[in-house]
C-alpha cells in the first residue's frame, strides 16, 4: 500500500501536514506526535523581521469553530533559520516554510534568505485577513496574485505554493492567476473573515474586531473550493479548512487535494495529525486502495 504523494516534485511520506500558524515549528506538538509520521510540517508564517502581532484577545470560540486574529506574530527569519529549521531537520518529514510580508520587497527578502536553507517548499501567504497592509491585499485581486507569484518565482530556490484566500467571489480566478504567474502549487483555504460580539458587554470579543474563522464549520466551504480549483487548474493542491479526522481528510483528497493540512483540530486534540495518518491507512485497507493517488480527485456524480 502506498501513501506517498508527489507535491511539486517533493515526495511526502504521506499527505498529512500541519496548517500554518497552528503548530508553531513543531517543537511544542512534538511532545504529543511523532513528527516523523507526518508528511510535512508547515511552519507559522515568518517575515523578514520580527512582528509583534495584534493585541489580545486574539482568539474566540464560535459554534463549530474559532476566530483568530494573531496578526502573524513571528520572530523574524534570522531566528527562524537559526532555531526552527535545525530543529525540524532532525525529523524524517518535509519542511514547508510559510512566508508573510507587508510588501513585495518583504516577501522577497524572506524567500531570498531561504535560498540556501534546507527547506523543501515555500508556502506564500497572500491571504491573511488579520494584518492591515499586505497579506490579503495581495490575494483578492487576480492581477496582484499573478504579480506576486511571478516575483516569488523569480527569487525562490524552492517550489512555490501560493496560499489562497476564501474571501473572494471566485476562487478559481485567483487560482488561475497564480498558475499564470508560475506557481508550482496552491494551498487553500485560509480562514474566512468573521466577527463575534459579546452581547453582555456589547463589545467585540477580539481586540482586532474581526478574525479569521477556522474549524469544522468551514469544512464544506473548503471542500467546495478545493473541488472548484482542482477543476480550474492543473496545479497540485494542498487542501485545508476544518479537517478534524481522517474522514474529513479523505473528503478533501477526493475533492482534488494532493495533500492536506490540519490546523484547528490540533487545539481540540494534540495527537490528531498522527491519528489522521492512521485513519487514512485504515480507509485504504478497508477499500483495498493500493495507492493513495487513486483517491486524488476521485469524486464523481452519484
Amino acid at each position: 500500500m502506498n501513501m506517498k504523494v508527489d507535491l511539486c516534485g517533493v515526495t511526502l511520506n504521506n499527505p498529512v501536514m500541519t496548517a500554518s500558524g497552528t503548530f508553531g515549528s513543531g517543537a511544542e506538538y512534538s511532545e504529543f506526535v511523532d513528527l516523523n509520521k507526518l508528511g510535512a510540517v508547515v511552519t507559522k508564517g515568518v517575515a523578514n523581521v520580527p512582528w509583534p502581532g495584534n493585541p489580545t484577545p486574539r482568539v474566540a470560540e464560535v459554534y463549530g469553530g474559532m476566530l483568530n486574529a494573531v496578526g502573524l506574530q513571528n520572530p523574524g527569519i534570522d531566528v527562524f533559520c537559526e532555531r526552527d529549521i535545525p530543529f525540524l531537520k532532525k525529523y524524517d518529514t518535509k519542511i514547508i516554510v510559510n512566508v508573510c510580508g507587508h510588501s513585495t520587497e518583504e516577501y522577497i527578502a524572506v524567500v531570498e534568505r531561504l535560498r540556501d536553507q534546507p527547506v523543501d517548499l515555500l508556502e506564500i501567504n497572500i491571504s491573511c485577513p488579520n494584518v492591515k497592509e499586505g497579506g490579503i491585499a495581495f490575494g483578492q485581486d487576480p492581477k496582484a496574485v499573478e504579480a506576486i507569484t511571478k516575483e516569488m518565482k523569480k527569487y525562490a530556490a524552492q517550489p512555490v505554493i501560493m496560499k489562497l484566500s476564501p474571501n473572494v467571489t471566485d476562487i478559481t480566478e485567483m487560482a488561475r492567476a497564480a498558475e499564470a504567474g508560475g506557481a508550482d502549487g496552491l494551498s487553500l483555504i485560509n480562514t474566512i473573515t468573521g466577527m463575534k460580539i459579546d452581547i453582555h458587554r456589547r463589545n467585540f470579543v477580539l481586540a482586532n474586531r474581526t478574525g479569521g474563522m477556522s474549524g469544522p464549520a468551514i469544512h464544506p466551504v473548503a471542500v467546495r473550493m478545493v473541488y472548484q480549483t482542482a477543476q480550474a487548474v492543473k496545479l497540485p493542491i494542498i487542501g485545508m479548512g476544518g479537517i478534524m479526522n481522517a474522514e474529513d481528510a479523505i473528503e478533501m483528497i477526493l475533492a482534488g487535494a494532493t495533500a492536506v493540512s490540519v490546523g484547528t483540530a490540533n487545539f481540540a486534540n494534540p495527537k490528531v495529525t498522527e491519528q489522521i495518518v492512521d485513519g487514512i491507512r485504515d480507509y485504504m485497507e478497508m477499500y483495498k486502495v493500493a495507492d493513495i493517488k487513486e483517491l486524488i480527485g476521485a469524486v464523481h456524480d452519484r
Binding site: T22, G24, Y29, T56, P57, R58, A60, M66, N68, T264
Partner: peptide
C-alpha cells in the same frame, strides 16, 4: 484566551 495551551499558536500572549 487560549487555543493550543502549549505554546504553539501565540493566542495567549
Amino acid at each position: 484566551r487560549m487555543a493550543c495551551g502549549i505554546g504553539a499558536c501565540l493566542a495567549c500572549v
